[in-house]
């Protein structure tokens, strides 16, 4: 219960094509994360799945049934929005109950589900409050609770954490991960936060300009990016891209992640000057201006003392260097 299939979905707003043919299979119980730069169509795709937006062409199947003409409320989905979107005039309890009441669920059953959901999300003390009387984190938990009580086949999250502060974001991320484990429900989650994508996902879908660039588990995307875009998008700090010609390589571009470079004060492949050093405690990011490779980032685990202006040699790990062709695709 809760698989999703998207077949060649296209969406255009007037002359602007926002989704250019999306094919995707989400299995029951999977946690799928959509990532991509701002404006690439993540929210639009999510809204098409929810039925809030009609696709221009293509099909959406939930549990094998074509839902293209089914209204959102009948699709067996629940959605959590970035802006929480709680009903301002209703109490927390009624916010959660509204959808069920609309669907004609018996009162006792509504009561039971709210009880379970509010216990799960520690919302019991706030059930009689209105959204205006809650903090941001509490509001987002109510929004999640409102989704949980519907017991949907499919949870849709549209950047649910981006309005929360950093500490709260970590907590709520954990709660969502636990929720997924407990409910074993299928979840689709939109974010442009790397860490959220890597930590939550069973499967990441990287979108760019209305197309899917790659689908895979977090580690697949990290270890075997299909192209330059995915390689640059997954991983932080970003992968270094070096013009192949400068290094005397046949590939158009050479990519190496900052953590796959080692530095040495005396010898190495690329000689460079330290431009800037970021000391984060657990690791250190060095920005080196290399004669051969240009400006690159090096990530060193632990503390490393380097002053701007110092000369260092960087050496890439040959086994973890990526080669990209002129079309951006990885060369094997």
């Amino acid at each position: 219960m809760g698989s999703l299939k998207i077949e060649n979905v296209k969406k255009a707003f007037g002359p602007v094509e926002v989704l250019k043919g999306i094919d995707l299979q989400v299995n029951d119980g999977e946690f799928v994360v959509f990532v991509g730069p701002s404006g690439c169509g993540k929210s639009t795709l999510l809204r098409v799945i929810a039925g809030l937006e009609d696709s221009t062409s293509g099909r959406v199947l939930i549990d094998g049934a074509d839902v293209s003409v089914t209204p959102p409320a009948k699709r067996g989905i629940a959605m959590v929005f970035q802006t929480y979107a709680l009903y301002p005039h209703l109490t927390v309890k009624n916010n959660m109950a509204l959808g069920l009441k609309q669907a004609g669920t018996p009162a006792a059953e509504i009561e039971r589900r709210i009880k379970i959901a509010s216990a799960m999300l520690s919302l019991e003390p706030y059930l009689e409050r209105r959204p205006a009387e809650l903090s941001g984190g509490q509001r987002q938990r109510v929004a999640i609770g409102r989704a949980v009580v519907r017991e949907p086949k499919l949870f849709l999250f549209d950047e649910p954490l981006s309005n929360l502060d950093a500490a709260l974001r970590v907590n709520t991320r954990l709660e969502i991960a636990q929720l997924h484990r407990r409910l074993k429900a299928t979840m689709i989650y939109v974010t442009h936060d790397q860490v959220e994508a890597m930590t939550l996902a069973d499967k990441i879908v990287v979108l760019n300009a209305g197309r899917i660039e790659q689908i895979g588990s977090p580690m697949e995307l990290y270890n075997a990016p299909a192209n330059e875009f995915v390689a640059g998008f997954i991983g932080s700090p970003k992968m270094n891209f070096i013009d192949g010609a400068r290094l005397g390589e046949t590939a158009k571009t050479i990519g190496v992640r900052p953590e796959h470079l080692t530095v040495d004060a005396n010898s190495g492949a690329w000689k460079g000057t330290v431009v800037h050093a970021e000391h984060l405690g657990a690791d250190t990011n060095l920005y080196l201006d290399c004669e051969k490779a240009g400006l690159i980032t090096v990530r060193i685990f632990g503390v490393y003392n380097a002053e701007p202006g110092a000369t260092l040699y960087a050496t890439p790990d040959a086994a973890k260097t990526y080669r990209f062709g002129a079309d951006g695709k990885v060369l094997r």
């Binding site: 929810a50 809030l52 209204p71 959102p72 929005f81 802006t83 979107a85 709680l86 959808g99 609309q102």
Partner: peptide
């Protein structure tokens, strides 16, 4: 008026 709010209502079957 927030689009999300209206959409939340639609998903809840209003």
């Amino acid at each position: 008026v927030s689009n999300d709010l209206k959409n939340a209502g639609r998903i809840d079957g209003l």
